[in-house]
Design a protein around this nucleic acid. Structure first.
Lengths: 245, 245
DNA sequence: TACAACAACTTGTAATTACAAGTTAAAAGC
DNA sequence: GCTTTTAACTTGTAATTACAAGTTGTTGTA
């Protein structure tokens, strides 16, 4: 199967630049290109995929934003080294960021509907407060070692049967996309280094008082006006968090 | 002075989309627009600034990337709340991220030329190693409290008189831009929560063993092939780091 | 051989046109 | 007065054309 066929087979609902982006992205991640390699030039990509330069450039821009390529005027699109560490500072859920590392997800609590906490860590729109909050605590383990303790808060709006679903070893982001057509588009986060409380230390199997990384995140989606939230505690003894800026 | 004049007066060396970006950015940061306000529509901006939609959209895309606006199809460009916390996870130097907070920069050591450390925390190109490293330790204080302890490493390539410059209460990014025409375009970073060593605790005026945030950053510039590096220790007791993803 | 000029690439910027699709408020109909 | 329809907006996608500017290898000249 050549590139163009793979391109044609992509989800026809997607815009052209997105389909090209997916193809190139998978090629880079699958090692078709290596660090330092040049992608085909924009004009070549135009010819191969039957697109025009603005469209091709749109796809390449996304790859630049994601850090998979760097562009240099006069030269071309240079494939970047694949990130080491855990790419949780950028978009994509934990599962996708961890790639094919041995990942396990354990449900500690939920999902269940409850009231939003008072003084929630991000300001909440009124409709969110009225409809309540889907609450869930999860533990993510890599190679058997707990790495993240994650508390998720989702507005209970138009998510039928959500609390009855199983999330054991499932990706939250995938579930949202597959069953509810909700895609994560980005978000904002705050970040601290804090001493582990006894509870958090218990989950992460470290000593209380040991430094852990605390993230509070607001996660935006393609559904207009729908965001959800996550409070995350991370043991960075063995893995660093990785991100672009 | 109206918008178009301010636009015309911008650095003529900059591309059009960049000039428009700067104008809109300054308007948002200066409170001309408030959270939730709509920017003028793309077509209005075209008319006012004498540009076409692709150019205007390019400028708006940058604002979206920076998190200053969000766009919604059918509606417009919505001004986002200004970030709280310290925007160090995204581009822009510490000084710019801290805005008008009371910032002080103290030089602990350097700048001086020395050999690169063995097993440097990012892989170094050979030309960097040969030409040596400009080393500098700085402490950044906010309202008199030390917040960052920053070790910078710059390749000693084509930076005349760099080590003789004064950096006391000066921005490194600004110096690079003004004197060497080097602009920071982005970079990558790794992130840990670690216990403060006695040395770091001393600089940050906290107890040894207290959690601090450790960042290792590779910082890319518009000068082809020129990146520099920073190892950063951050006291997050009072301020969170802030970023988009 | 060494150097300079050039040609053939590359990406960057920008104008122009067209239509699709989501939002909103006014107009039309009941 | 109320609902439905429509028209006039908004941003999203995409093709087309043109030139600027940086990179690289080749060609020609000294």
């Amino acid at each position: 199967m050549d590139d163009n066929e793979k391109y044609q087979d992509a989800d026809p609902g997607l815009p052209q630049y997105r389909k090209l982006y997916e193809v190139l992205r998978s090629h880079i991640l699958n090692g078709v290109y290596h660090e330092g390699d040049l992608l085909p030039s924009e004009n070549e990509l135009c010819t191969v995929y039957g697109l025009t330069r603005p469209t091709v450039r749109h796809a390449l821009d996304e790859l630049v934003r994601e850090g998979l390529i760097k562009k240099q005027k006069g030269k071309g699109s240079i494939v970047h080294a694949l990130p080491t560490g855990i790419g949780i500072l950028s978009v994509a859920g934990t599962t996708s960021a961890l790639g094919n590392r041995n990942l396990e997800t354990r449900i500690i609590s939920g999902p269940e509907v409850r009231r939003w906490e008072d003084n929630f860590f991000f300001p909440l729109p009124d409709p969110y407060i009225e409809s309540g909050c889907i609450y869930m605590e999860r533990l993510r383990l890599v190679n058997g070692k707990p790495l993240f303790y994650d508390i998720s808060y989702l507005p209970n709006i138009n998510l039928p049967r959500f609390t009855t679903r199983s999330f054991e070893n499932k990706s939250l982001f995938d579930t949202l996309r597959r069953h509810y057509r909700i895609e994560v588009t980005g978000g904002e986060q705050r970040l601290w280094a804090i001493p582990a409380t006894p509870e958090i230390a218990g989950y992460l199997q470290i000593d209380p008082g040991e430094p852990v990384l605390h993230l509070e995140r607001k996660i935006d989606t393609n559904r207009v006006g729908y965001s959800f939230y996550s409070s995350l505690y991370c043991n960075t003894e063995d893995y660093a968090l990785y991100g672009l800026f």
